[in-house]
Design a protein around this nucleic acid. Structure first.
Lengths: 188, 188
DNA sequence: TGTGTTACTGAACAAAATGTTCATTAACTA
DNA sequence: TAGTTAATGAACATTTTGTTCAGTAACACA
C-alpha cells in the first residue's frame, strides 16, 4: 500500500457521470420510480461499475451529499478564488453567505434533490453540517431555539435556491430579520 | 350505484392494519428497506388485498397522510368532544394549538414517518394543509415571509412531537415568540 | 516510453420483489 | 335472509437487484 498523490481520474469521471445521470432522472421522475438500471443507462456505465461505487440508490445520495458539502463547508480559500470571504469568516453573516454562495454553484445537483421525494436525505446532511455552526453545545443536545435556527436557515436556503434573483447577501439579510435575535451571541 | 351510508368495516380494518404495520416497520428499518412483502406479513393481510388498496408504498403514505389530516384539519367539533376549541377558532393561537393537539393523538403513526427517510412525503402534505392557514393569497404564490412562517410551524410541530413534556399551548407560545410579528395581521 | 496496477465492461446468473389473476371463502349492509 | 362486496392465497410472468468473472482499457509513475 502506497500513498497516492493523485486519485484515479476514471473514478472521478464515473462518479460524476452517475451523479449527473441521477440528477437528470430526478427531474423527470420520482426517486422511488428511478431504478439502478435507469441510472446505469443514463450515466452510460457498466452495471458492475455502478455497484463497485455504490451499494444502493441511497448510498449514491450519501456520496453525492458528501461530495457537495466537501465544497460548501470547506476551509476558507486563500486569495485567488473568484470569491473571497476569507478575511471575515468569523462574522456569522459572511459565513452564512459563504455557504449560500457554494450551494448555488452546485444547484444543478441540489435542486433536483430538494424538489423530490429524497429531499430528506439531503436535508439531513445539511442540518448536520449547519449544527456545527449554530450549536453551542458540541454534543448535539440542542435546545428549541437552536433547532429553530437551523430549521430557519434550511428554509432560507430552500427559498434562495429556487429564486435565482436572490443574492446570498439578501437571503442572509432576510434570514437575520427573523432569526438575528436568536443567534447565540445575541442571546442572554 | 347507490349511496352508502356506511363504509365497509372490513376495509377500515384492513387499512388500519396496514397503516399500523407500516409504522411499526418504519421504527426498525428505513422506508427504502421496507418491501411490500414486509408490510403484508406484518399486517397479516393477503397480497392481493394490499394491492387492491394501494398501488405502491408511496400510495400507502398518501393514504395514511390523508387519513391523519382528515382528523387534524377537520371542521370544529361541537361540544361533547374531549377538547373544545370550537368557541375560538378564529383566534390563530388556538387554531394552531388545535392542530398540535390532534397531531399528538396520531403521533403513533406520525413520529415513525417524520423520523424516517419518508418524512418528505408527510411534510409535503402538512405544508399544503398549513398553507390554507398561513397564506394570504389563495393561488399559492406566497412570499418569503409566508414560506418561513409555514416552515417555522413545521419545525415547531416536529419539536413538539418529539418532546412529550410540551403542551400544544407552550409550543404555540414558543412559536409565536419567533414568528408572531410575521403573521399576516401583524404585518403592515 | 514502458510497466505494473487499477478501473471499467458486459454478459450471465441467482435471488428477490413486484404486480396481476382468479376461484373460493368470509363478512358486510340493508 | 339475500345480495353484494372484500379478503384470501396460490400461481404466475415480469422486473429489479446484486454478484461474479474473464477480458479490455486507462491510469500513475518511473
Amino acid at each position: 500500500m502506497e500513498f497516492h498523490g493523485q486519485i484515479d481520474r476514471r473514478q472521478q469521471k464515473t462518479r460524476l457521470a452517475i451523479y449527473r445521470a441521477f440528477s437528470s432522472l430526478l427531474m423527470e421522475k420520482s426517486f422511488a420510480a428511478i431504478t439502478v438500471q435507469d441510472i446505469i443507462d443514463e450515466a452510460n456505465v457498466g452495471r458492475s461499475t455502478f455497484y463497485s461505487h455504490f451499494s444502493t440508490k441511497e448510498d449514491l445520495i450519501d456520496g453525492l451529499c458528501k461530495e457537495i458539502f466537501s465544497h460548501v463547508f470547506s476551509e476558507p480559500e486563500g486569495p485567488g478564488a473568484d470569491h473571497d470571504f476569507s478575511h471575515s469568516r468569523y462574522n456569522i453573516d459572511d459565513e452564512l453567505a459563504h455557504i449560500l454562495y457554494h450551494l448555488r454553484s452546485s444547484s444543478d445537483l441540489i435542486i433536483p434533490m430538494i424538489s423530490s421525494d429524497c429531499s430528506e436525505m439531503f436535508l439531513r446532511h445539511y442540518r448536520t453540517e449547519l449544527a456545527g455552526i449554530f450549536s453551542k453545545d458540541e454534543d448535539g443536545t440542542d435546545d428549541f431555539w437552536t433547532f429553530m435556527l437551523i430549521g430557519g436557515f434550511v428554509e432560507t436556503s430552500r427559498w434562495y435556491l429556487s429564486h435565482v434573483e436572490m443574492t446570498p447577501e439578501s437571503a442572509v439579510e432576510m434570514f437575520m430579520e427573523v432569526y438575528g435575535r436568536l443567534l447565540p451571541d445575541e442571546r442572554s
